[in-house]
């Protein structure tokens, strides 16, 4: 439930703090600097708390599945149990190197994550096989560039045909940088315009609608 003041006050806060933090970048006055440093110090532990809220949401969802005996609730029990076990191990024995917590990270969490990402090698290869067709000039350029960089980076081809490796590093260093730079400039300008609209309350969708 959102009241009228509760709807407007956040936009005032957003304007005040948003402008303050933009100004502190350009005005190195000690008063402004100490204020913004203090706010950042206050903000740091809150960032951890926000992560906790997200984790609570995840665990509540799985607990509800177990409680209602929904389909595949057994897997939710696995999630809840493993989360609780990892948290207890970390809280009781600490998170430093050589602890059970670090061992669980190395032998349980890391292998599963690495294997899941490595699975993408198969799916990317099959997707590329289906999608890469030299139908247009752009698609042909993409295909050729991908092959040159891929084979140029493999040590075997580097030994077999050295110019391929040089061409691959040229592509990565120059045309690739040009494309990335243009995309970076474009997306940054777009993100900045959204940020300005949000700070000045022109775009209000970020905090929901008035009720």
């Amino acid at each position: 439930m959102v009241t009228k003041i509760g709807y407007r006050l956040p936009f005032v806060l957003m304007l005040v703090f948003g402008v303050l933090f933009v100004v502190q970048y350009f005005v190195p006055h000690p008063a402004i600097k100490s204020t913004t440093d203090g706010i950042q110090q206050i903000k740091q532990p809150v960032s951890a708390f926000i992560i906790f809220i997200g984790l609570v949401g995840l665990l509540v969802m799985h607990a509800r599945r177990v409680k209602n005996r929904e389909r595949r609730w057994g897997y939710s029990l696995v999630t809840l149990t493993s989360a609780a076990a990892m948290a207890v191990v970390g809280m009781v024995w600490g998170v430093d190197q050589g602890t059970v917590y670090a061992d669980w990270f190395t032998y349980l969490l890391s292998p599963i994550e690495a294997t899941m990402f490595s699975l993408l090698a198969f799916f990317v290869a099959s997707a590329a096989f289906r999608a890469f067709r030299a139908r247009t000039a752009g698609a042909t350029i993409l295909l050729v560039s991908a092959f040159i960089v891929m084979f140029g980076m493999i040590p075997f081809f580097e030994e077999l045909f050295p110019p391929l490796s040089k061409l691959a590093s040229f592509i990565v260093s120059y045309p690739n940088t040009a494309a990335k730079r243009a995309i970076l400039i474009g997306t940054s300008l777009g993100a900045m315009s959204v940020a300005i609209k949000t700070i000045f309350g022109i775009d209000r969708t970020i905090l929901g609608r008035e009720q």
């Binding site: 992560i51 999630t79 493993s82 970390g90």
Partner: peptide, 21 residues
């Protein structure tokens, strides 16, 4: 899949608790 989600949740909680909170 569900094991990694749970472990990652517990890992994240402990890391943020012990290093920041």
């Amino acid at each position: 899949e569900h094991l990694v989600v749970g472990l990652a949740a517990g890992y994240t909680f402990c890391t943020y608790w012990q290093t920041i909170f």
